[in-house]
Design a binder for these strands. Structure first.
Length: 845
RNA sequence: GCCCUCGUGGUGAAAUGGUAGACACAAAGGACUUAAAAUCCUUGCCCGUAUGGGAGUGACAGUUCGAGUCUGUCCGAGGGCACCA
């Protein structure tokens, strides 16, 4: 019996497929399938997360191919981004060179996996050919009013004189400089995504093939809230404050107003030193929602008071506070401490009155104790709102507010405009110029692309583009007057918001995409990627599709991704030495004394399995795994144990077992071919045929539903079935036919092995003719069935019998069973529950 | 803080409301072998030699002839929160 040489057959078939472009004789142009996995960031080497993502996608792409679909299965590189700049700074090289090198390494590694990717379609977002079109789209958006310029906060490192990403802020300090990070206001470019807030929310319901939880996350992100705006008059002053609230029903519990630091009313205090100090304190809190939510609530008491709109003569103090955001609602709230935890925290600290206005449902307790009460209940202490439910009170108070003309019902979205300016070098330059007269205008399209210069000083403080001696100096094409380029570059999320369109016609020079190719391929039928992109990338892509539709008349599609699948992460145990240093899996070994370090034999603490990460060193390199076990074994293992949407735990034992399985199939294939013909029995033949047919049906269904781990389990079962039947009375030819079908079923999962086995069975290289076997539906369920006999809901016996037996017959059969007779002795059957081919449940007294 | 997801053997897991633990990893025992590797078989909580019986899907209730699955409350773990991609 031959041993399989995985590296030989991997090489053989990878070059075979590449030459034939994965085309099949029976491909039907009328049936298209666009299979797309999220393209990788070229960070250096591929990791197991990539392997998982692309293995899942490849199963589907190959499955569709051999089912006759014309499949688009491209690959590219999300090549701009911060890590390139960081690496460049560390190693003193150009981000471009670093990125190109990584792309070539990773492309080679991906090819080792034997994916059915058409590499002719490869794109890279850092190529001029790509970002030129992105600049064109930016200008289109600008001309249609979808791009705006406004001021917003950033994390500012005062020592490096640069803007920091949230991840570069550690404990409120810059990661390189260790300087305390400040919030600083900058003018930046924004995409007007909030223009589509309602559409992006409403259209979620049309995405039938998206996971519910992703849709829910997007829904919450967009954060539509229905509430109302209320004007509070300021006492002894002609001004008023407009607040937004979703709980107008608690207006009688309002005991203070709180304004954002950036609220227009605060302008009057900007010269007061105590306010300046306060503002500075606020600016030391990070810009994330989490940081703001967890920060200690601090307030600045103004000398203003507001008049309560419904309680005559009641005055409530006005504070400025750090937990109110200017870019949500109106930048001002009324505080009702009894029914909002944040308000309560604030009120407790500043000794502000607390008035309960909602009595919890189903209790007699008038008073509430443990924190703010936010549940259902009835209104109290609220004049004309008393005894109403919360929703009734909301309706009534809004009517009153509108009647008094002091406010109106208002829908607010949490979704903010998308800030796309980055003060960095390694990104797509924003094609805008500044004229001397202060005007900001787009570059003439004929001047595109605006190229990134190569000769930059990556180590200079601040933005290298801004520091470049000549790059930003330009002229306005129309008038010839001197102008300055925008030195900000685009958020890399912009790059990935339309790459799936570029894949439809990746080589086209004249425009971002060809409309005909677009019409044929879009939308993406199946998009596959990590759950970490559930919100931003997917939302931005949905926005881009709408923005493009808004700019181009003949684009009809709104949703770019028809089907979405989010796969889980790849995890591995973590290892720590006694001194607390992380060790990688290949630095430890399992000995009789437990886990030990390979380096010095010291004891190792095994930690929980966590997502593979460089910082914890729990990384396994896919390339070395492929070298040892072969591409099929690596793919097989990553698909086998866990459901694709859940996290999977990598283990060397597991992948080694997968390799053994690859060998087992290889042996089976030889045994089938070399089998000596013995006796033949039609009963054995029929049994095998029926069972096999059932597996085809089941596995087809499982792949369509992404239950790839279960499909893998069924393939193990088919293997056992075939092995068992080698010993049974089956005609050789029939066994070979089934083995042939089996190998076609295996193809999407272990394509190298499958093709090699098929070629042995066919006696020649066999590929373009491969078709997915079809299950014969008329044969389904023709087998014997196993019925469960229960007594009072407890399993007492099994009956193996032919299909579709009547209740009467089953009952008669059941009564013949000794164990059932024993249990029925002296008892009376009150009734039976009978489910055909499943169960009979006898209810006795 | 807010939002989301997930809890089933030693482990990863399977199970249209109908046999809980398919399939695999690890472990123990056995077969083959001079030996090892490879391969194959058996076992898997409790009582019992066994036929069989009992407990059992994070906890507690509920719906049902029947609940891992549906409902409620609680407990625990993990993830996201707008400049990482």
């Amino acid at each position: 019996m031959d041993k399989i040489n995985t590296s030989d057959i991997d090489k053989k078939w990878q070059s075979f497929w590449a030459q034939r472009k994965n085309k099949f004789k029976h491909t039907d142009k009328e049936k298209k399938f666009y299979c797309l996995e999220m393209f990788p960031y070229p960070s250096g080497k591929i990791h197991m997360g990539h392997v998982r993502n692309y293995a899942i996608g490849d199963v589907l792409a190959r499955y569709k191919m051999i089912n006759g679909f014309n499949v688009l299965h491209p690959m590219g590189w999300d090549a701009f981004g911060l890590p390139a700049e960081n690496a460049a700074k560390e190693n003193n090289l150009n981000p471009k060179d670093w990125t190109k090198k990584n792309i070539s390494t990773m492309k080679h590694q991906l090819q080792l996996l034997g994916l059915s990717i058409d590499w002719d379609l490869e794109i890279s977002t850092c190529d001029e050919d790509y970002y030129k079109h992105q600049q064109e789209l930016f200008i289109d958006f600008y001309n249609k009013g979808l791009v705006v310029r406004k001021e917003t906060y950033v994390n500012w490192d005062p020592v490096e004189k640069t803007v920091l990403a949230n991840e570069q802020v550690i404990d409120g300090k810059g990661w390189r400089s260790n300087a305390v990070v400040e919030r600083k206001k900058l003018f930046q470019w924004f995409f007007n995504i909030s223009k589509f807030s309602d559409e992006l929310l409403e259209d979620l319901s049309s995405l039938k093939e998206w996971p519910e939880r992703v849709k829910l996350m997007q829904k919450n992100w967009i954060g539509k809230s229905v509430g109302c705006e209320i004007d509070f008059k300021i006492y002894k002053n002609d001004k008023s404050v407009k607040v937004f609230t979703t709980r107008p029903d608690t207006i009688f519990g309002a005991t203070f107003l709180a304004l954002s630091v950036d609220h227009p009313l605060c302008k009057d205090y900007l010269t007061r030193s105590d306010f300046i100090d306060f503002k500075k304190k606020c600016s030391q809190v990070g810009t994330t929602e989490e940081a703001i939510a967890n920060a200690e609530k601090i307030g600045f008491k103004t000398d203003l008071e507001a008049e309560h709109p419904f309680i005559k003569g009641k005055k409530i103090p006005i504070y400025v506070s750090n937990f109110i955001l200017m870019d949500y609602g109106t930048g001002a709230i009324f505080g009702c401490p009894a029914h909002d935890q944040r308000d309560l925290d604030f009120a407790t600290k500043y000794k502000i009155e607390v008035i309960q206005v909602v009595k919890p449902k189903n209790t007699n307790n008038e008073k509430i104790h443990n924190g703010a009460f936010t549940g259902e209940g009835s209104i109290i202490n609220s004049d004309f709102l008393n005894n109403l439910t919360i929703s009734e009170a909301k309706e009534k108070i809004v009517k009153e507010i509108e009647k008094k003309k002091i406010g109106k019902k208002k829908i607010t979205y949490r979704l903010k405009d998308w800030g796309v300016s980055r003060q960095r070098y390694w990104g797509c330059p924003i094609p805008m110029i500044y004229l001397k007269n202060g005007k900001v205008i787009p570059v003439d399209k004929s001047e595109l692309p605006i190229r990134l210069p190569d000769d930059i000083d990556i180590n200079s403080k601040g933005n290298p583009l801004d520091n470049h001696p000549t790059w930003k100096k330009t002229r306005y094409k129309k008038t010839g007057e001197k102008a300055t380029r925008e030195t900000d570059t685009l958020d890399t999320f912009v790059d990935s918001s339309w790459y799936f369109l570029r894949f439809c016609s990746p080589k086209l020079k004249s425009k971002p995409f060809d409309e005909e190719a677009f019409k044929y391929w879009m939308p993406v039928d199946q998009y596959i990627g990590g759950i970490e992109h559930a919100i931003l990338h997917l939302l931005y892509s949905r926005f881009f599709m709408r923005a493009i539709k808004f700019c181009k008349k003949d684009i009809k599609i709104k949703e770019p991704f028809k089907g979405l699948f989010t796969q889980g992460m790849v995890c591995h145990e973590t290892y720590k030495s006694e001194k607390g240093k992380w060790l990688s899996p290949d630095q430890v070994e399992n000995t009789k004394l437990g886990m030990r370090s390979k380096i010095d034999g010291s004891k190792i603490k095994v930690g929980p399995s966590e997502a593979m990460s460089k910082s914890k060193k729990n990384i396994v390199d896919p390339e070395s795994m492929i070298k040892i076990f072969g591409a099929d074994a690596v793919r097989w293992f990553i698909l086998s144990d866990s459901p694709p949407e859940r996290d999977v735990q990598w283990s060397t034992a597991g992948v080694s077992a997968s390799h053994k399985f690859i060998q087992r199939i290889w042996s089976l294939n030889q045994k089938v071919l070399n089998r000596k013909q013995g006796e033949i029995s039609s009963a054995d033949e029929k049994k095998l045929q029926l069972k096999f047919n059932e597996y085809i049906f089941k596995i087809t269904d499982l792949i369509e539903n992404f239950q790839l781990n279960v499909a893998v389990a069924k393939i193990y079962e088919i293997t056992s079935l075939m092995e068992t039947n080698l010993e049974k009375k089956i005609q050789n030819e029939n066994l070979i036919i089934l083995q042939n079908k089996f190998m076609k079923i295996l193809l999407p999962f272990a394509p190298h092995l499958s093709c090699e086995c098929l070629s042995k069975l066919e006696g020649k290289n066999f590929y373009e003719e491969i078709q997915w076997p079809k299950a014969d539906k008329s044969l389904l369920g023709k087998q014997e069935v196993t019925l469960v006999v229960q007594i009072n809901g407890k399993k007492r016996a099994l009956i193996v019998t032919k299909k579709d037996l009547s209740e009467k017959d089953v009952l008669a059969e059941a009564k013949k069973i000794e164990n059932i007779q024993k249990n029925l002795k002296g008892k009376k059957i009150i009734k039976n529950i009978f489910v055909k081919n499943k169960i009979i449940n006898l209810i006795i007294n």
